[in-house]
């Protein structure tokens, strides 16, 4: 305080300025550090999102393989049933074809969910909560695969379109499973 009443001096003003400068530098440093940390977290999250995406896609690919194996089992089982029928009724070829088709479709619709649905990371499930049915000899199986990596979560979905092979093609050995299954309507989201 000044000894002379009413007179203002500048003693201590440098300290005030110094405190202000230090406060500004400190504020700039902390805010910059904060921004940089956010930037790094975004980059890290981007990495995890990409890893989760390919993981969820892997789940769909594995489901494709599971469905393909199921088709082969369905064909094998149907052929076996047709053979048993033909032993009893060798002349009724037309009915044998019907038996093949109905057994094949029933086998697939009964087992597809249990084969595809799986827990873990990625978790895969058939999205249709009701029963799956063949429409115009095509079974559409909507799949959803979810993968989680730390904070990143990625969901990918796809439709598996499964067809019905001709009984004659199966008997003649012209049937190839890859012609009766395909992916359609791919999609993904965070």
């Amino acid at each position: 305080m000044s000894k002379e009443r009413g007179k203002i001096n500048n003693r201590g003003s440098v300290l005030v300025m110094l405190i202000i400068v230090i406060a500004i530098v400190f504020a700039m440093g902390t805010s910059l550090l904060n921004i940089v940390f956010i930037n790094y977290n975004i980059k890290k999250f981007n990495t995890e999102t990409k890893q989760a995406f390919y993981l969820s896609e892997n789940g769909l690919n594995e489901s494709y393989i599971a469905a393909r194996n199921l088709i082969e089992e369905a064909v094998e089982d149907s052929v076996h049933k047709v053979r048993l029928y033909l032993i009893e009724y060798p002349a009724n070829e037309e009915e044998a074809e019907n038996i093949f088709n109905s057994n094949y479709t029933q086998f697939l619709t009964a087992n597809i969910k249990t084969r595809i649905n799986r827990c873990g990371n990625p978790s895969v499930e058939v999205r249709n909560s009701g029963s799956l049915i063949f429409i115009s000899d095509i079974l559409v199986v909507p799949l959803r695969s979810e993968a989680v990596l730390n904070e990143a979560e990625k969901i990918a979905w796809v439709e598996l379109n499964i067809g019905v092979p001709e009984y004659e093609d199966v008997i003649d050995g012209e049937y190839d499973v890859k012609n009766y299954i395909e992916f359609g309507n791919w999609g993904s989201k965070k």
């Binding site: 910059l32 550090l33 940089v36 790094y40 975004i42 980059k43 890290k44 981007n46 990495t47």
Partner: peptide
């Protein structure tokens, strides 16, 4: 040192990306 640290973290983030 804050600023030096910021530079390092930025570099790590860029490399990650």
């Amino acid at each position: 040192n804050f600023f030096v640290l910021c530079g390092r973290i930025l570099n790590i983030g860029r490399n990650e990306y």
